[in-house]
Amino acid sequence: MHASTKRTCLAGLIAVILLVLAGFVFQHWQTWILFTATKAIGYGLVALGIITLMRGGLVSFGQGLVYCTGAYASGLMATRLGVTDAPVLLVVGMLASALLALIVSPLIARYRGIFFAMLTVALSMVLYGVLVKMNAIGGSDGFTLPEPTFLGWQPSVDYADLALYLLAAVVAVVASTATRLYYDSMAGLVALAVRENELRVEYLGSSVFKVTVRHFTIAGALGGLGGTLNGMALGHIDPLFSFWTTSGEFVFIAVLAGYISVSAVFLSAMILELVRSFSNLYFPETWQLILGGFLIVVIVFLPGGIGSFWERVKEGRAARAQAEQEEGAGS
């Protein structure tokens, strides 16, 4: 195994251990954090998909499409077929959204910039419009989900949040490790080149179209995971999952994180959820005002996102090291 692959997997392993430990700590200290963290992970997974798209030079403003599809697919599986096993539902949600994304992607892969963004909005709003009017599955009220089980085990009420959080943590780490490995792979590097210069990528013999389809499908799978997870966390799903303002929050997280770091996505999702919790508590009327102001501040002062912050620290260290080396060579 390659050294960088080993390092990434090791980082993932450490992350799982830390997150699980944190879960047990918060279970006995501040239980509400577990629910917030689970929701943040759900959001973060969707935003991870947007970041994957961003690496290929595209931003989707309609990831609610796959978020909602995953939630509804797994939700219907639970209510109609009686499958309540959380891992199974996650796989169902992921596959449903990935499939939808795969079908849709050839249509939208021709577009760039705001046209790509707006086409994704249009598609997510079509889904929203359909769901609102489908009274058989709850219309605009949506429907309530049964309590999830975990490989046959039904946790008691006190431990329900913890169990779902632990599953979410594992899913988040597996998903981020896999995405990181993809970013660092040969294909991932070529995809990053698409962002910079499509013409050259084609003239080197790679297909920009294929990269876009691949990214949109990955983003679909991640969106489906996020939707399923949040459906289970909230215990209720409705068409607002596909509304454009929901998608806007995913883009918010992605921009706050930047496309360089994978873990920054979950950090920004957690920041968003915490800000949301606090402003719901103290400023319930001005939550959007705070969010909007925050977004502008991020765009102005941290255009590369939180992830770029780490990159800058790393670059600074490298520059210092180089300077020292040169000094050493000079003396």
């Binding site: 660092d184 040969m186 590097l189 910079e196 013999g205 790679s206």
Partner: peptide, 25 residues
């Protein structure tokens, strides 16, 4: 990107077998 990374991209496009599994570096 750096000069080396530019060439890595070119190498990546020229040898696409298992490109999802092979680390770029």
């Amino acid at each position: 990107m750096t000069a080396l990374e530019n060439l890595l991209v070119a190498i990546g496009t020229s040898n696409q077998a298992f490109s999802l599994l092979r680390p770029a570096r």
